[in-house]
Amino acid sequence: MTPSNDKAIVVKNLEKRFGSFTAVDRISFEVERGEIFGFLGPNGSGKSTTIRMLCGILTPTSGEGYVAGRDIISQPETVKQAIGYMSQRFSLYEDLTPYENIRFYLGVYKVAPGRWKERIAWVLELTRLQAVRDVLTRTLPPGWRQRLSLGCALLHDPEILFLDEPTAGVDPITRRHFWDFIRRLAGDGITVFITTHYMDEARYCEKIVMLNEGRIVAADGPENIIQSACPGKKEATLDDAFVALMAGRGEQTP
């Protein structure tokens, strides 16, 4: 398989085994450029393992994958340069200010020093943190810290942004604002690959892949998944579809 220039991510028969345990079982899917793509499943379904392979952190057992046109097996370091990643757990330095965190990650991402002033100003404006740029990060509300994490993940102009449960533990209003932010990024052409356990959030995704026990059980738009998993149920929600699919009913192929 060769990478497709019009696809942000291409995965073919991707597999990861740990000894006799198969965490990801020959999955295949594609993500369009500029798309908000949802990757859903219960804990232990293989989501995190797949993301680690796509980010060039974990080597697949077999299969192929291309992220931003880079081979995840032979070019893992170039993959890392093309992506931004934000984990569920806050990973910035709480004893630094937002400004200091931004400066630190500019160095981590090897952004040219001549661009630092512009990138710092851009992130502070984007995250609406100018007024607290010199306040210790640990004193900021959770939603503000999440905005800072997202801003730092965007410092090096990544083509693809991986968000692993970015709104876990924040209030509904903050979640709504966060999704407004995500839609703005996608509108600017950044591909957003997101995992979430909130099905109301997943409805914002243009396409969803659902995993169960390492296998894809659904791959389509949210409305089509609901109709396929819950036929004849006009009031069915994505929560209902998720429960049905995770129980083993209505299995699909991508």
Rank of each mutant, 00 (worst) to 15 (best):
L129I: 02
T49L: 02
E118L: 06
Q81G: 02
T196E: 05
S48E: 09
M1F: 04
V217G: 05
E165Q: 01
Y204H: 14
M246G: 05
E159D: 15
G69T: 08
M86N: 06
T195W: 06
G38K: 06
K117D: 12
V79E: 09
V192D: 04
I208L: 14
V79Y: 03
D220T: 06
E64V: 04
F29W: 10
S28D: 13
P254A: 15
R203Y: 13
A168V: 13
S149N: 14
I72C: 04
K207H: 14
P222I: 09
L54Y: 00
T22C: 07
L140D: 07
R52Q: 13
Q88A: 06
I27K: 08
Y198N: 11
T137D: 02
T195N: 10
R26I: 00
L155Q: 04
K80M: 02
D157S: 15
G46E: 09
T195D: 00
K12I: 12
M1Y: 10
F37R: 03
E159K: 15
I57H: 07
G169V: 01
G56V: 01
E125R: 14
Y204L: 15
R147F: 11
D188F: 03
D71F: 04
R17E: 10
P42M: 00
R176Y: 13
Q130K: 15
K7T: 02
L245W: 10
I194P: 07
L185A: 02
L140Q: 06
G19T: 03
L154P: 00
N5M: 12
M1A: 12
L54H: 12
I190H: 02
E206A: 09
G169N: 02
S91V: 08
A68D: 12
D134I: 01
W122L: 06
D200H: 08
E206R: 15
K233G: 04
E94N: 10
E165C: 02
S45I: 04
V209Y: 07
I9N: 03
T237M: 06
L148S: 10
G189S: 05
I182L: 14
K7Q: 14
F37A: 02
S45K: 05
G84W: 10
